[in-house]
């Protein structure tokens, strides 16, 4: 290791910069958490909130009393859980045959899937198709739109290709058909890539604002991001919400934000590990 003065100076400057960057990036989040544990009056008065002022759980108490939060939480959970399971199932079913080198017209099918990555119908035609499919104002709209993505299929396909073919051949000898082989032999071997995709899809669904905002117009169908946006967007719209509004002070908004990032926070250690793997898998050319 280089121990010259120049090198040491570089290291010191570099470490200082990175620490400052980290602090700056975390401060807004930290402030929000402090705010959520502060009393309504203190939160309204404002300030830098390096620590909660007049520590209280009032904000949490008041939002947990609101039915809207529970409905939205339930909807978001439903979309995330059901959506992730189905997406994994259909993505792997699509990827497995495409990973077979001998499949007739394989190139055509792969191009058919890949083309959707560089061109799409766009918002309005998709909206009209969803309407034709009677998916407007249905939680399934969000699930369906996240079901199979070309990107995920490619990642899964690339992974399956790395598995040794002898495994399948010996099972084939024993008379198992490919569907059985897929479920009994291939899928269990895909656990690492499935874990990556699962977290990936789940975070995407949990955070999804656009689709639930466009396709779900009923209050009983609101997801957490949509509700949160409504609360943030301010008093005017929140007025129609009744219950949520009287309490939607700074600290209540902060508490809502903290509550909706809790699930992400709790799986973050896994996220970091598997997302990195996935991102690197994805950067391998199809």
């Amino acid at each position: 290791m280089d121990k010259s003065i120049g090198s040491r100076f570089f290291s010191a400057a570099n470490h200082t910069f990175l620490v400052l960057l980290g602090v700056m990036m975390m401060y807004p989040l930290w402030r929000e958490i402090s705010l959520s544990f502060s009393s309504k009056e203190e939160a309204l008065r404002g300030g830098l909130f390096l620590w909660p002022k007049h520590f209280t759980l009032d904000a949490y108490r008041s939002i947990l009393k609101s039915d809207y939060i529970w409905t939205a939480y339930g909807n978001s959970l439903f979309i995330t859980i059901v959506g992730t399971v189905l997406a994994l199932f259909f993505t792997s079913c699509t990827a497995y045959p495409l990973a077979k080198r001998t499949l007739p017209f394989k190139k055509v099918f792969v191009s058919f899937v890949l083309f959707t990555m560089i061109f799409s119908g766009g918002l309005i035609p998709t909206y009209l198709v969803m309407k034709e499919l009677h998916l407007i104002n249905s939680l399934w709209a969000v699930i369906v739109l996240h079901l199979v993505s070309a990107f995920n299929v490619i990642i899964m396909m690339n992974f399956i290709r790395t598995l040794p073919e002898e495994l399948e051949e010996s099972a084939m000898m024993d008379g198992a058909n490919p569907i059985r082989i897929f479920f009994v032999i291939i899928l269990p071997l895909c656990k690492p890539v499935l874990a990556t995709l699962a977290l990936w899809i789940a975070v995407g669904l949990w955070n999804n604002f656009f689709h639930s905002f466009i396709y779900l117009n009923d209050k009983s169908l609101m997801t957490l991001p949509v509700l949160l946006r409504l609360i943030i967007a301010g008093q005017k719209e929140a007025d129609q919400l009744g219950e949520a509004i009287e309490t939607s002070s700074e600290s209540v908004i902060a508490a809502t934000i903290v509550i909706s990032l809790l699930p992400i926070l709790s799986v973050y250690p896994f996220l970091q590990k598997y997302f990195i793997k996935g991102t690197l898998l994805g950067s391998v050319k199809a």
């Binding site: 929000e32 991001p225 809502t256």
Partner: peptide, 12 residues
């Protein structure tokens, strides 16, 4: 984090 959350934090 979603833009809704980050946006809420920024607005505050």
């Amino acid at each position: 984090l979603s833009w809704v959350i980050l946006g809420g934090i920024l607005i505050s």
